[in-house]
Each structure stands twice: as C-alpha cells, then as structure tokens.
Simulated assay, not measured.
Amino acid sequence: MSSKYKFVIEYEIHASVKMIYPYLSTASGLAEWFAEEVKTLEDKTFDIVWDGQSHPAKLVSARTNSHIKYVFSPLNAEDSEDPSYLEFKLSHSEMTDTTFLKIIDYSEMNNEKDLRELWDNLIYNLRELLGAGHE
C-alpha cells in the first residue's frame, strides 16, 4: 500500500469566485500560475507539466465557482487503487466580502513544510495574476 499524504490548506484571496474559478478549471488558467505548461487532452484530461515532466490528470468533478477536483493518472498498479488528487474549493464570506480557496493536495509528497512553501508560492503567483494583493 502506498503511503499518500493529505495536505489541506486554505488561503484568503481578495477576488471574486468568478474571477478565481477560470484559473482553477481551465488549462490556460492553470498554466498561468500552477505549472510550466498545461494542455487539454481528450475526455476531460489535462496534461500538467512540472519540471519538464508530464502528469496527466482527469477532471472528475466540478461545480462552477465552487469546486473542482483532478485525479492524477496512476503511475503503477499500486497507485491505481489510491490515486493522487488535487481539489480546489472556493467559498465566499458575505460578511467580510472575502473569498477563501481551500486546497486538498493528496500525493506522495509528505513534507508539510515543503508543501506549505510550494502552495504559498503558487498562491502568491495566483494573487499576482488576480491583482488581489497579499496579506
């Protein structure tokens, strides 16, 4: 059994869910902040490239302006029973007029510090694109 790690983190982003969602749900949007390159393949599958390596991921569920989930193609038989996935959940607080982006990163990467640093940098890039400033 492979040992996967579920990393969950939430960020406050000063932009509307309608502004943020395309950056989470389209190949062109993801390519701007999340990966070196993202291509759309057939059947709701994206080819996500990091460090020159291809990582196919299938869009398995999505609700516009609310959530999106990608399941990565298994690397081996063991992985197919417990595939890595990435989920983005958007929520908006009417009271504070703030949008929260919750990220669930389920993968073999299990170093909490490295994951936090990775996502902090990625969200920094996303905020730059959105012109959403930094806390």
Rank of each mutant, 00 (worst) to 15 (best):
F7Y: 13
S25A: 10
V8N: 06
D82R: 08
H92E: 15
I9V: 12
Y124T: 12
I13G: 06
M1N: 09
W33V: 01
D120P: 05
H67C: 08
D97V: 14
W119S: 03
H14L: 12
A62C: 12
H92D: 12
V8R: 05
L59H: 09
E32D: 06
Y106V: 06
W50K: 11
L122Q: 14
V60M: 08
L126A: 05
E32Y: 04
Y23N: 05
W33P: 04
I13T: 07
S91I: 06
E81Q: 13
P22S: 04
F72W: 13
A62D: 13
V60C: 07
L101P: 02
K44N: 14
M19C: 08
I20M: 00
D114N: 13
P83C: 05
A35W: 00
D120I: 00
Y106D: 01
L30V: 02
I13S: 04
W119I: 04
E135G: 10
L30W: 03
F100C: 08
A62G: 10
S73N: 09
I20F: 00
S84R: 08
K6L: 10
E81N: 12
T99D: 10
D120F: 01
L41E: 11
I13P: 04
D51M: 13
N65V: 06
V71Q: 09
D51I: 10
E128T: 15
D120Q: 05
T99F: 02
L90T: 03
I103Y: 00
M19A: 15
Y23M: 02
N125E: 15
G29T: 03
S80K: 10
V38T: 09
H55V: 05
R116G: 11
G133Q: 07
W119Y: 04
S80C: 05
E36R: 00
